[in-house]
């Protein structure tokens, strides 16, 4: 389907740019949601138009605002760099060339949290505030963060998908999309599931108990 009515009319947001500001907030929000605790240090690479006109569009403040868990409509955006510093999150920005294939509005975030937690998240803002997360920790993926989303890091073991979809079926939870990618056969894999409703906590705790699961995060839509 793609393109909900409120992707086209909306988001309600703080200016000045839907792609460079609101979309950037959403990328920051997803990156924050992938961390267990608030990150301590975030290094952000900006590619293409994000690098060229990001300051005028407050892309830096927008990414920081998302990292603080603020929505695109949150008026604290204009003070977000100061708020992040006050919250003990060190955020730095640099321009980078992420290659010909990368969408012109792309950011790659390197997040360091407590207990050696580390994530690398790449996201593109494709217009009108709609975003696409294209890579998490080196795994190719594709999700928008506009639906309730479950992210599972796990071993690439036989029957894993059957187990998780079985739990979804038992809980009568519908799966909108599901995508698995792996480093190589039998090694580590990442599965991203977009749901039509927030996943039940009971299901999440059962998913975590599957032996192959190494980590699980839930991303709520940023609105």
């Amino acid at each position: 389907m793609g393109f909900s009515a409120f992707d086209i009319i909306g988001p309600a947001m703080v200016g000045p740019s839907s792609s460079h500001t609101a979309g950037a907030v959403r990328i920051g929000w997803v990156a924050r949601s992938l961390c267990r605790e608030a990150p301590r240090r975030v290094r952000i690479e900006l590619h293409g138009s994000f690098a060229a006109t990001g300051r005028g569009h407050a892309t830096d403040r927008a990414l920081a605002s998302g990292l603080l868990g603020h929505t695109p409509e949150d008026e604290r955006l204009k003070d977000s760099l100061e708020l992040a510093a006050a919250a003990g999150i060190e955020v730095s920005f640099e321009s980078a060339d992420l290659g010909e294939e990368a969408h012109p509005n792309t950011a790659r975030l390197h997040l360091d949290g407590p207990d050696h937690e580390h994530h690398v998240v790449t996201g593109s803002s494709v217009g009108g505030g709609v975003v696409e997360i294209t890579s998490v920790d080196g795994f190719k993926t594709r999700f928008g963060g506009n639906l309730d989303t479950l992210v599972l890091w796990h071993g690439d073991h036989p029957g894993y998908l059957a187990k998780i979809t079985g739990l979804f079926a038992c809980a009568d939870m519908n799966i909108a999309t599901i995508r698995t990618s792996r480093r190589s056969r039998g090694t580590e894999a990442l599965t991203v599931i977009e749901c039509d409703a927030p996943p039940l906590p009971e299901v999440c705790s059962l998913l975590e108990r599957i032996e192959s699961t190494t980590a699980l995060r839930v991303i709520a839509p940023a609105r």
Binding site: D7, G10, A12, V14, G15, P16, S17, S18, G129
Partner: peptide, 21 residues
């Protein structure tokens, strides 16, 4: 003008074109 001053707007379909509709 509201958009340029970090005011609240509705992207329709984008912020840069939010005044027309």
């Amino acid at each position: 003008e509201c958009n340029a001053q970090f005011g609240r707007i509705v992207a329709t379909p984008t912020a840069g074109s939010a005044g027309i509709v």
